[in-house]
Computed example of a mutant assay.
Amino acid sequence: MNWFLFFWVVFKAILFSTGGFGPLPSLHTDFLANGWATETQFAEALSIGQITPGPNGLWVVSLCYLVAGIPGAVLSCIALLVPPLFVLFVQQCYNRIAHLPATQGLLDGVVLVIASFSIIVLMGMFQSSGLDALTVVIASVSAILAVTRRVSINLILLFAVVIGAVMG
């Protein structure tokens, strides 16, 4: 087994996820594509993750142990620890430059880029699913309600799904 590639696949899945079961799709795709894991191993790792105490993300350690033994488990632990340590490092750096006007300008620019990417992705989703007036209305009303923060995001999503299912 190429241990560097193994670490990179696990690290990438963890780094670009939101924790818990976030790495599942990426790990599932990459582990199966490389022939490292089976569906049974994924099911076992997820089961172990559910019955053990602690954060949900620890199922990754179980999976990597089932796939690559102790070295896989150790590499997955390192991959789980690096992103939070990186965030702490970035926070320390940010605290030193937070008062500078350029810092706020940079953050404003990053927000604009992320918002632009989100709009591009949404437009692609709308176009691929058949853009219609109902979809535009649901998306617009949902966005306005989300921005005002007067209605819970969960309620917005629930009503959007119900309206879309009933009307469409």
Rank of each mutant, 00 (worst) to 15 (best):
A45D: 02
Q127L: 14
G105R: 12
P84I: 05
C64Q: 03
A73E: 03
G49A: 05
G72E: 02
L32C: 04
F126L: 14
F126P: 00
L75R: 01
A79R: 00
V166L: 13
A33C: 10
V161L: 15
T18E: 10
F6Y: 15
G69Y: 06
Q127I: 08
S76G: 03
V10P: 01
F117V: 05
L107Q: 10
I163C: 13
I156N: 07
Q50I: 07
A133P: 03
V67C: 04
I78K: 08
F89H: 12
C93L: 15
F21H: 09
A160C: 09
L88Q: 12
I51N: 06
A102N: 05
A146L: 07
L75Q: 01
V121T: 10
S62Q: 07
L107G: 00
L80S: 05
V74W: 09
A146T: 03
P71R: 05
F126N: 02
G72S: 09
I97F: 13
W36M: 06
T103D: 07
D108S: 11
H28N: 07
A98T: 04
A68M: 05
V110L: 10
I114N: 02
G130T: 11
M125K: 13
V113Q: 04
N56L: 04
T38R: 11
I144W: 14
I138R: 08
G19T: 07
L81C: 10
S152P: 11
M125W: 07
A68E: 06
A43M: 07
G20Q: 12
A165H: 08
R96S: 15
F117N: 06
I120P: 03
C77G: 08
I153H: 14
V147K: 14
L122K: 06
C64Y: 01
F7Y: 13
A102L: 14
A33K: 11
P23G: 01
A102E: 12
V90C: 11
L81F: 12
L27D: 00
W3C: 04
P71N: 10
I114M: 06
R149A: 14
D30E: 15
Y65Q: 05
G49M: 00
Y94H: 13
G124A: 11
S26E: 15
N34G: 06
V67I: 11
P25R: 10
Q104E: 05
N34A: 09
G130C: 13
L75I: 03
I138N: 06
